[in-house]
């Protein structure tokens, strides 16, 4: 860790009169897993495609592996892995042949510490496709196909890997296996990973850091826990006394609960202390951005014991 693999300064993207990205700033360090989270149309895909060098931008500075992706030389591609949501390309190729073919492009770029490409049969085993190696790509199931997409993305042993909605359409088991692959890439090879997702649970499980993108800006940047603290800093305490239910947002939940016991003793029932979840944080932040900051803040301040 330490050096920045990705640097984005004041990134802007405008289609006609519509600002999709309106001054985005962030950095990603080597070996970090960063998730871009945000509602549809917030600019997640646009951002990741600019980082991949697949899209021109309207303004701002972008560096990936020390190079501007727009004008990057072809050798830059050897360090960048992209997991594409394939549809039906190479349907008549056999799985092993396709991986070997695409891997061959990376042969001139291997180093002793980063041999390229990855050995095909090992890679097939890693992504759980060993038994499908001789099958035609078109015969793969949806889940197998997505694993092949991941395998193709990492066949060149990239330093930085981009994934746009990688687990869309995965069942829970496939999703779990995919998470294991991502963790292995980071732990064993210090791969830097940027992914987009709709799935808050996935973001929380995978990411060292979450960037929430709303309305063309980064509205939050931090670990899931740090984001939750920053969003409200409060825990929600609910309880009942004499059949009446109460809610309170407490700064110091432990002290507050102690005072509740002191006040009500045995009359206190249904006590529950809930930390702000990433979902609460996300909803609050996105809502705040979309509906203007003032209204949400005043609503939060008036919230208390009912």
């Amino acid at each position: 860790m330490g050096d920045a693999v990705i640097t984005v300064r004041d990134l802007r993207m405008r289609y006609g009169t519509n600002d999709v990205l309106d001054g985005v700033d962030f950095e990603v360090l080597r070996g970090e897993v960063v998730t871009l989270l945000g509602p549809n149309g917030a600019g997640k895909t646009t951002t990741i495609e600019i980082l991949e060098g697949f899209r021109d931008r309207s303004g701002g500075e972008v560096q990936v592996l020390g190079v501007d992706p727009v004008s990057a030389p072809e050798q830059w591609r050897a360090g960048v892995g992209i997991v594409l949501q394939s549809w039906r390309d190479h349907g008549k190729w056999r799985v092993r042949d396709l991986l070997a073919h695409l891997g061959a492009y990376y042969e001139p770029y291997g180093t002793p510490s980063r041999p390229r490409p990855r050995q095909v049969d090992e890679l097939l085993a890693t992504v759980g496709l060993a038994e499908a190696a001789d099958q035609r790509v078109s015969r793969l199931s949806g889940g197998q196909r997505r694993r092949l997409d991941v395998a193709i993305g990492i066949v060149g042993r990239p330093e930085v890997l981009f994934l746009d909605e990688p687990t869309a359409g995965f069942d829970p088991e496939a999703r779990r296996e995919f998470h294991d692959i991502v963790h292995a890439l980071v732990d064993l090879e210090d791969t830097t990973i940027v992914l987009t997702t709709h799935d808050l649970d996935e973001a929380e499980k995978l990411a060292d850091r979450i960037l929430i993108l709303a309305d063309g800006r980064i509205v939050a940047d931090g670990s899931a826990a740090a984001l939750a603290r920053a969003a409200s800093g409060k825990a929600q305490v609910t309880w009942s006394v004499g059949g009446q239910q109460y809610v309170h947002a407490a700064d110091d939940a432990t002290a507050y609960v102690r005072s509740l016991f002191a006040q009500y003793g045995d009359e206190l029932t249904d006590l529950e202390v809930r930390r702000t979840t990433l979902e609460d944080t996300y909803m609050a932040l996105v809502h705040r951005t979309e509906h203007g900051a003032a209204r949400t803040r005043s609503a939060a301040e008036t919230e208390g014991v009912r």
Partner: peptide, 8 residues
């Protein structure tokens, strides 16, 4: 797009 993602 697959081709474009690989070097050269």
């Amino acid at each position: 797009l697959r081709a474009k993602a690989a070097p050269h």
